Computed example of a mutant assay.
Amino acid sequence: MTKKMIQDQASGLRRLTQPSLTKVIAVTGGKGGVGKSNVTLGLAMCMARQGKKVMVLDADLGLANVDVMLGIRSKKNLGHVLAGECELKDAIVEGPYGIKIIPATSGTQAMTELSHAQHAGLIRAFGTLEDEMDVLLIDTAAGISDMVVSFSRAAQDVVVVVCDEPSSITDAYALIKLLSNEHQVQRFKIVANMVRSYREGRELFAKLTLVTERFLNVGIELVACIPLDDKVRQAVKKQKIVVDAFPRSPASLALGSLANKALTWPIPNTPSGHLEFFVERLLHTTEMLEEPFGE
Rank of each mutant, 00 (worst) to 15 (best):
M1K: 13
K3E: 15
I6V: 15
Q7G: 00
A10H: 06
A10V: 08
G12D: 13
G12T: 08
R15E: 14
L16V: 00
L16N: 09
Q18H: 02
A26S: 13
G30E: 07
G33L: 13
V34L: 07
N38K: 11
V39Y: 05
V39F: 05
T40N: 08
L43V: 02
C46F: 02
A48K: 05
A59I: 11
L61V: 05
V66E: 06
L70E: 09
N77C: 12
N77A: 10
N77V: 12
G79T: 03
L82R: 05
G84N: 07
E87H: 11
K89W: 02
K100Q: 09
G107A: 02
G121S: 07
L122K: 05
D131K: 07
D134E: 10
L137Q: 07
G143M: 06
S145Q: 09
V148T: 14
S150V: 08
S152H: 08
A154T: 02
V158P: 04
V160S: 05
V161K: 09
P166I: 04
D171E: 03
E182Y: 06
H183D: 08
Q184Y: 13
Q186W: 01
V191D: 03
N193P: 01
R196I: 01
S197W: 07
G201D: 11
G201H: 06
G201F: 09
L204K: 12
F205K: 03
E213L: 05
G219S: 15
E221V: 11
E221A: 11
C225S: 15
P227V: 04
K231M: 13
K231T: 14
K231Q: 14
Q234P: 00
V236A: 12
V236F: 02
K237T: 08
K240I: 05
V242S: 08
S252W: 04
L253Q: 14
L253M: 13
K261A: 12
W265H: 12
H274L: 11
F277C: 08
R281P: 00
H284V: 10
T286C: 14
T286V: 13
E290V: 11
E290F: 08
F293A: 10
G294N: 07
